[in-house]
Design a protein around this nucleic acid. Sequence first.
DNA 1: AAGCTCAGGATCGTATACAATCCTTGTGCA
DNA 2: TGCACAAGGATTGTATACGATCCTGAGCTT
Lengths: 244, 244
Amino acid sequence: MALIDQPQDQQGAFSLPPGRALEICRQLEMAILEHRILPGMKLNEDEVGETFGASRTVARSALQALAHSGLVTIERNRGAFVSRPSIREAHDVFEARALIEPRIARMAARAMSDDDLTMLRAHIENEHSAVHSGNKGQALSLSGAFHLAIAEVANQQVLTQIMRPLISRSSLIIALYWRRPDTTCESHSHEALMKAFAARDPFAAEEVMKSHIVDLHSGLDLVERPAAEPTLAAVFSGDPGSKT
Amino acid sequence: MALIDQPQDQQGAFSLPPGRALEICRQLEMAILEHRILPGMKLNEDEVGETFGASRTVARSALQALAHSGLVTIERNRGAFVSRPSIREAHDVFEARALIEPRIARMAARAMSDDDLTMLRAHIENEHSAVHSGNKGQALSLSGAFHLAIAEVANQQVLTQIMRPLISRSSLIIALYWRRPDTTCESHSHEALMKAFAARDPFAAEEVMKSHIVDLHSGLDLVERPAAEPTLAAVFSGDPGSKT
DNA sequence: AAGCTCAGGATCGTATACAATCCTTGTGCA
DNA sequence: TGCACAAGGATTGTATACGATCCTGAGCTT
């Protein structure tokens, strides 16, 4: 089912929550990134703990970690909610990405090895199959993973760490403000990126990435949205730890 | 007693630890930024809690928050230590700053109001008096605060949030790798920045900031350093909340 | 009927207690 | 003397318990 990616702990880990909390973090993050949990939803500490068979202490730690990456907003004495990025924040996030990611793409194109290329191609394959299977949430999540994979090729750990929450928040923004339900343009842009990478053309990669980010930004319909608040328990029905 | 500073929560707060932990965070952060606690030092949970008159739960939460901003590194079953940025990381951090901060400076120069200008001038005054009083740690900390103040003028919350840990980590890097104990060049660069801001010249501000960051980067002597490990108790001897 | 008050429940913040892990150190043996 | 190993202490990971705060809704007053 979800043999998507191994733990892969030691990659960019400098502030990972301890033990069990990490697993809860990953599960919740994936659920949010795949839009199985929507912005605005309440994340009750007891409920989270019980859902994953852990104590409230651990659940709380996981929620705080998610808050630090911006996926969750904690209000004192009120609890944790999936963040609902404001329109203003949506603009800021994509402006930040428009600044950072083209540079990352340039560095990646310089450092790109043959193995890296095949790895990125595999990412794109995954995206395609997700799109074909109709799982839009997973497709979007994998699209974010593609951007992160590029950052890791660029081998700039600090910028990679910076990009991670930006991409996560982009997922929230798209959940709230995306204009049409198609993500085909994504696929196309990623193909264009691959071409630049394959040619080891840093400037082309930089330019393609820049226009890709701008496209995403302009694909948003930035008007106020009401909050949707589904229930939690159904999302993790039965498989809190199903993933060898 | 503790009319130190009002909460002031809502500024850049989207993941602040709750209640008491926030105060501990602030105190520890300041101590680290002012080099009263040096990289590599162990931060025992019991000790931190007792030092600030709080339970281990709160101390732990504060340490985890600091870990998320990169000031502290937590190793499983071993505890929290003040981070010791590697040489590699030092390069990465300053490359990231060289990418982000010139853009910030440009935006700040555009958005600069007269009030902003006087506010920044006050920052520089503080720096000067700290330098003259011989308190190098505080001077360095204020220098970082100046950069953050610029970011807030630029009114780009996301990039500001990104800059915060970068500047904090820069402080650690300087503690470990700074070549000479003088920071006068800092002051000079900041004056040059002010001139560009006063003239509302975005491009000048961008260029000055860029060379400022590059100067900082090249002022580092990036060779391996041994870890210094002083004791904690002395640092906070009796004044957990003394700070006008 | 509308609005206010206040009790009850629910949820979070914090403290404490127990379990698991790691590090130290002292001892026994080669 | 040097090393292997085990017992003890120290420290972190996790669970539970208690207090504080907030939200809800019933009942009373106007």
